[in-house]
Design a protein around this nucleic acid. Sequence first.
DNA 1: CGGTACGTTGAGATCGGTCAAAGGTTGTGG
DNA 2: CCACAACCTTTGACCGATCTCAACGTACCG
Lengths: 234, 234
Amino acid sequence: MVRKLDKRAPLTGSDREALASLHITQKTYEPGSYLVREGMVVEASMVVLEGLAYRQKLTQEGGRQIVSVHVPGDFVDLENSLLHVADHNVQALTRCEVAAISVRDIIALIDTHPRIARALWVDTLIDGSIYREWIMNIGRRRAKQRLAHLLCEFAARLRMAGLGEEDGYRLPMTQEQLGDATGLTPVHINRSLKALEAENLIVRRRHYVGIPDWDRLRQASGFSELYLHLDQEA
Amino acid sequence: MVRKLDKRAPLTGSDREALASLHITQKTYEPGSYLVREGMVVEASMVVLEGLAYRQKLTQEGGRQIVSVHVPGDFVDLENSLLHVADHNVQALTRCEVAAISVRDIIALIDTHPRIARALWVDTLIDGSIYREWIMNIGRRRAKQRLAHLLCEFAARLRMAGLGEEDGYRLPMTQEQLGDATGLTPVHINRSLKALEAENLIVRRRHYVGIPDWDRLRQASGFSELYLHLDQEA
DNA sequence: CGGTACGTTGAGATCGGTCAAAGGTTGTGG
DNA sequence: CCACAACCTTTGACCGATCTCAACGTACCG
C-alpha cells in the first residue's frame, strides 16, 4: 500500500514513518457481509488487503446496482472519512481481509502530510475516472460489448493487483452480480456470456475467465486502459 | 467559491489569503466549445463562474455519453491537476465564464494549505458520489423515471447554485443532450418528457422545466438528495 | 444424500431503438 | 421585415434488444 501511494505522489521519510506508525485494525469479512451501510456515519476507513469487495446502491423499488468492484490495495471507504454520511453500501464479494484506520487518524494524517493526502486524493480521482467509464459503458454499449468491457477492466485491474494469470483470471462473481454491475438481468448475462464464448472471445471454466486473444477482446469491447490511469498505479 | 470551500473544510486566515492571491485567468467559452479534450495534458484547472458545462466521453463507435453536468461554482477539471492525462472531454453547454488557475499553482497551494486541499478533495468526492448515483440511474431505472431523476438532480443543484425559481428552472439542454446524459435516444427522451407532462409531473415551456409538485416528482423518480451531500455544500 | 443457490434454456412480452418525414424555432443576411 | 437555413422537436410505423416468467439442470455444502 505504501508502495502504491509512493507511486501516486512521492513520499518523504517522515511520510513513511507516519504511515508505518498508524494504528491499524485488521478485520475479516465473510462474503456478502457489509463493510459499510448507506446512511451510516462511518468512523473508520478501510483498505482491502485480500479478497474482493464491491460498492452497491439500491433503488426505491429494490433494484440493485453495483457501482464498483475493488481489488486488494484499494481503499473502499476513504470518501467516508470526509463526507459525513455514507451514500452507498460496501459488501464483501469474497472473504475479505481488511485494514481499518480510524477517521480521526486519517484526518490528522492528511492535515499534516500533504504528500500522503495527495496520494490518497489521486486514488479517489482514479475511482472517479472508473465511474465515468462505467457510466459510458452502461449508458452507451450493448449488452455483449458492455459485459466484455467489464471483463477487460477486471483483467487489467487484477493483473495490476498481482492477481490473475497471463491469459485469464478467477472471477468469483455470480451471473446475478455481473448483471447488477452492468445493468442487465442475470438471464441476459448468461446469454451474453455464451455469445462471447461462441465467438471465442472468452473461455469459461467454473469461476474462471480465460482470454485466448486479448487484442480481439479489447477491440470487440472498445476497451482502452487510459481511464485506469495505470501510470499512476503502484 | 471561497465560501463553498469554507463550508467543506474550515479555512484559516492564511488559507483565505492564499486563495485571494491566486493568479486567475478568466475566459469565455462559446456553447459546444471544448474546455478539455480527452488525451490532453492539461496545464490549468477551471472553475465555472457562469453558465453550464458538461463532461462527455465517446465510445469507439461514436456513441456519446454525458457523464456529468456542472453548474456555476463547480470545478470542471480539478482531476486533471493530479491525473496526468485527461480521460474525458469537457464542453460548454451554454456560454461559460470560467476562471482558470495553473496546475502548478494548484499543486503548490494544496501542498502548503491542507485545509484547502481537503476542501477541494471533498469537492471531487461529491462528484464521485454523483457518478455513483448516475450509474444506478442509468443501470437500474426505466426511461421515464431515469429522466425524472435527472430533472430532480438539476433542480436541487441549480437551486444550490442560486439559479432557478421555486417551482422550476431554465434547462438549456437539447433533447439529444438529455439523451446523451441518460443513455437514451432523443426520440425516446421526447416521448418520456411528454409522458411526464401528461402525468402532470412536469410542465414544459421552451427550455424551461416547471415542477408543479416537487414531492410527487421526487416520489415518482425515486430521488433522494442524500448523494448530493448538500450539508457539505456552500 | 438432500437442499440450496446458481446456471441454462425457451417462449412470449415490452421497452426503447431505428428510420423517416413533417412541424417549429431561431438566427442571419438581404 | 422577410426568407431561408440550420437545428431542434414531434410523430408514426416498425424492429430488435433485453426483460419476464417459468421450468429444468447442475454444483457445492453440510
